[in-house]
Design a protein around this nucleic acid. Structure first.
Length: 312
DNA sequence: TCTTGCTTACCAAGGTATCC
DNA sequence: GGATACCTTGGTAAGCAAGA
């Protein structure tokens, strides 16, 4: 989505003159100002919190985007939503990274930064390939391009750090779909990441949660365990067992550990468990950032490089 | 039985804190 | 300020379970 949002944004530069700064301000506004409650759209649980709630939501948003009117902001938002929906519906080819090959065949499958999904990898002995050049991030081929790779490619290969925004979406998705349903989380929330990536991220996240009471550590993105003041960190232990220890049924209401004295709360300082600003949340069943009648999880986020949608 | 999806364990790279 | 150690993170192979 972020990619979609960015694509939309850049596409819109021609129409509305939205600069990256404008987009950023716009996104920040969206993240911090709750949409007004709307009767027909609030059935899913509504969005609490935030600083607005009034009818002039667009005005509030516009107030945070220098030089933009409420109407412009609204149009911009709707354009973003349209693009996101179009991409999710498979009607629009997903953006690709610079230097990326066009996806062959009809599959619009995104070019992902997960090498697993995009290029065959020599299946080697686990030990033997460790340290081997072709597994190292600078060394494997992409689409037969060989070793000559651009800086951008190398940058991409070494892994794209999760942004706070992505992590928040991850938390929201976790809250909504529960642990284990990485596919849904990836598809509906963190659409810039593959399910595998989401699962991997989750693994680290839960490990982090469970080691919260260990000695002092550096802060990390995984210290963010709540969104909008609502703690969405799961009390469940590490992702354990193939038996799918998934104690959280999909769509079920998760208990918020912070309210139930769970680790995962602040352990050394502010970053830990600090509420993520933004009205996004509410936990279960709540659409993310939904002003007027739009599909959930539309939270435009701009990226320096448009992350491709992972979902065909 | 085969396919799909999830979990775990491991690695390399990069960043940060600490020590000199 | 530089060197070193430690920590965090993203990615992926392998194993396992559930469903078709």
């Amino acid at each position: 989505m972020a990619g979609a949002a960015l694509a939309a944004s850049s596409a819109e530069e021609g129409r509305g003159g939205w600069s990256r700064e404008d987009d950023k301000a716009f996104e920040n506004a969206l993240a911090t100002i709750a949409p007004p409650p709307k009767e027909e759209e609030e059935e899913e649980g509504g969005s609490e919190g935030g600083e607005s709630g009034g009818g002039d939501w667009w005005e509030l948003i516009a107030a945070r985007v220098p030089g933009k009117t409420a109407a412009e902001v609204r149009r911009h938002y709707e354009a973003l939503v349209e693009d996101v929906n179009a991409i999710e519906a498979g009607r629009v080819p997903v953006p690709r990274y610079v230097g990326e090959e066009a996806p062959s065949g009809s599959t619009p499958t995104a070019v992902t930064h997960s090498s697993k999904e995009k290029q065959p990898q020599h299946h080697q002995d686990h030990n033997s390939h460790h340290g081997s050049a072709d597994r190292k991030r600078g060394g494997f081929e992409i689409g037969g391009q060989g070793k000559s790779c651009s800086k951008a490619e190398q940058e991409r290969r070494k892994g794209i750090p999760w942004t706070e925004e992505e992590h928040r979406l991850f938390l929201l998705g976790l809250d909504k779909f529960g642990k284990g349903d990485w596919r849904s989380i990836s598809r509906n929330f963190v659409i810039s990441r593959t399910p595998t990536q989401v699962a991997s991220h989750a693994q680290k996240y839960f490990i982090r949660l469970n080691s919260m009471n260990r000695d002092r550590r550096r802060s990390s993105i995984h210290d963010i365990t709540s969104v909008n003041g609502v703690d969405v960190s799961s009390p469940q232990g590490p992702i354990t067992g193939q038996a799918n220890s998934n104690p959280v049924a999909v769509g079920s209401t998760m208990k918020h550990p912070s309210q139930a004295n769970v680790p995962g709360v602040a352990m050394y300082g502010p970053p830990v468990g600090h509420p993520v600003t933004g009205h996004v949340v509410s936990a279960v069943g709540t659409p993310v950032m939904l002003p007027h009648g739009h599909a959930p999880y539309v939270m435009p986020v701009a990226y320096p490089v448009p992350p491709p949608s992972m979902h065909p």
